[in-house]
Computed example of a mutant assay.
Amino acid sequence: MIVMMTFFLFQLYEHHLDIRQMQVGSEFEMPHHGILQVHILGEISSAKHFEYDHLFVHYFFELPKGWSCETTKQLSGVTQTCSARQTGIANFSYLFELQLSFNLEVLQTETDVLLSWPQMFIKVLSSDSWTRCRTEGYGYVSLPPSPGLHTIVVSTWRPLSSNPTGEMRRFFIGGSPELEDIDFVGIPSNFQDSLLSKYGLHTITSGDVTVKFNIMHHSQALAGSDTVADGGRGDARVNRYSSFLLERLSAATLVSSVNAVLIAFKRARERMLKARDGLEA
C-alpha cells in the first residue's frame, strides 16, 4: 500500500512538473544585443486622505525617447472601486505587469540629449451611489532606476475653482475642474521650451497613493558572461557599465532639479536688484 501511494505521488509530481515546464519553457530567452529589458511587477496598493469615498485610480505610463513596449495595453489601466469609509484607507491591491525595452544605442548617438526613465501618471476619481463622479487628485512618479522592490507614496493635488460656484457644483451634482492634458502634472513629452509656467493655476493638496514596484533589469550588456575569460574582471566592467547606464538615464531628473534651483536663484537676485534700485532712488 505504501509503495502504491509513493508511486502515485511520484506520478502526480511528474505531471505537475511537465505542466510547469510547458508554461515556463526550458530556455531563458535573452534580449537582443543593445537592448535593455525592464520587467515590472507593480501594485497600486492603497489611497488615503481623499475628500470623498468610493475611489478608483486611472493610471498610464509615458515612454520617453528610446523606450518601447510591445503590448500597448499594459501602458494604462483602471483599478476597481474601493470604499474607504471605515478606515479612511482604500486598499486596492491592484496588480499590473509591464515589460519595457530601451535601446542602448541611444546612449551613444544622443550624447547631447537628456534621457529619462518612464513616468507613471495617476488620476484618482470618486463615484457615489448617485453616479456623481469627481476628480480627487493628480500625481506622477518616475520609474525607479535601480532594480529591486520599491515602495513609493505619490502625493496628489487637484485643480481648484476660482469661485465658490465650482465647489458647490462639485458637492451637489458632481464634476470638478480637470486637466485637459494629464501630462501637465509633470513635464509634457512634447514640451520644447526652456521654461514650463504653471502660474495662475489654482490647486489644493489632495490625498496620497501608495505604489509598489518590483523591477528586474535584463540585458546582454549587464551579463557577466566574460568573467571567466578575463580572469574575473568582467564583474567590474559590468558594474561600471551598469553604473554608467543608471547615471546617464537618471541625469534628466538631476539636471531638472539643478535648473529649478538656478531659476529660483535668478528670480530672487532680480527682485533683490530691483529693491536695491528702489532704495537708491
Rank of each mutant, 00 (worst) to 15 (best):
F121D: 14
S46Y: 07
L149F: 04
F61C: 13
N103R: 14
I173P: 11
V141K: 05
G224T: 10
P145I: 04
L9H: 12
W157S: 02
F56L: 07
E51T: 12
S242L: 07
L160Q: 10
F172I: 09
N214H: 14
H218D: 12
G231W: 04
S45Y: 11
A275Y: 00
M4G: 01
I263L: 10
T151P: 08
T210M: 14
Q37N: 09
Q192T: 02
P31L: 10
Y94R: 06
Q11N: 15
E110Q: 10
L75E: 06
G166L: 03
M216I: 11
F172P: 02
L107S: 03
I2N: 10
I122R: 10
T131K: 03
L9F: 15
L179G: 14
D235S: 15
D193F: 02
A268C: 06
L114G: 06
N103T: 10
T87Y: 00
W67K: 00
N259R: 06
M1W: 03
R276L: 11
G139V: 05
R240I: 13
K198Y: 03
L98C: 12
E27G: 03
S83W: 01
S162H: 10
L149K: 08
I173V: 14
E70P: 07
S250Y: 04
N259Q: 06
L98A: 13
S225Y: 09
S142A: 12
I215S: 06
P159T: 10
L36W: 01
D208I: 09
K73P: 02
L249N: 09
W117I: 09
G174L: 06
P145R: 04
V38Y: 01
Q21T: 06
E51W: 09
L201P: 08
I89S: 01
F172A: 05
F102C: 01
N103Q: 11
G200Y: 07
R248P: 07
H33Q: 11
S127P: 02
L196F: 02
S126M: 01
F60G: 07
H150D: 09
S76P: 13
L36S: 02
A281D: 14
Q86N: 03
Y94P: 09
L104W: 02
G231F: 02
Y59K: 03
N163S: 15
L63V: 13
L107A: 05
Q99V: 14
E14K: 15
F96M: 01
R248Y: 11
V141W: 04
V124H: 12
D53A: 02
I89P: 05
M216C: 10
E51S: 08
